[in-house]
Design a protein around this nucleic acid. Sequence first.
DNA 1: ATGGCTGACGCTGTCAGA
Length: 275
Amino acid sequence: MLVATWNVNSIRSRIDHVKEWLTAQEVDVLCLQETKTEDQFFPIDVFSKLGYEVSISGQKSYNGVAIISRFPIEDIKIGFDQVISDHKDLSILNQQKRIISAVINDIRIINVYVPNGASIDSDKFIYKKKWLECLHGYLKKIDSNNLPICLLGDFNIAPEDKDIHTPNNYKESIMASSKERKLLKDVLDGKLEDVFRIFEPGDKNWSWWDYRHSAWARDKGWRIDHIYLTPDILSCANSCWIDKEPRSKEKPSDHAPVIVDISWPPLEIENEFFF
DNA sequence: ATGGCTGACGCTGTCAGA
């Protein structure tokens, strides 16, 4: 089972890339961020014709998340408020369409587009902090039903210095600060593991390259798109990689997709036959 | 070389992203 995350920077601008990639990769579950369109304009038909179900939570111009799946999509939860009700900033945090979750093949898939935060001393950073704190509460609540969890998306945080092309240039700046790294660590709560790092410990693995400064041509990137798994499903993961090919195309998204290959559902072992 | 790109909206510019 292949599960992927991709910030497409507008689904309507990128539909041909996404369609081509999905067809070639045979991904089973694709989680999109920055779809940038209201639900009525989302190109659902393109995916239906390829045999996929679609669940979306979009808004005009900004943000927007979607789950595209070959398997049935069950128990869809849009925004934070279908899971938690006790956060004081819930209504503000729900205005931006940044989280969609569903159960697919008995896995709780949680697709997130974490706010960027602009700069550490800005109001937008306060929003990012609150959003991540709310996500922490959301995960605690949703964990209670005991399904394996796959939390994935655009986190707008480089977890370690080796996830940044020139870390010394970005000490304590946005996406690199110790404050954000701590907030992310709290979200993961010792339970969710960065599956890419299980298979690829080395540096120079980027998922995002700035459109400016010829960042792609000079390979000056960041790894800010991640897939996190709970141990029950992490043990079934075979590989995880970043597919740079779509970033090399004409008019690309500034992000590349990240994919995990999981042997799922796991083979049942009938203990009685061993006796 | 931290905004010297890009997309949306909707109009020849502004906002936001990261």
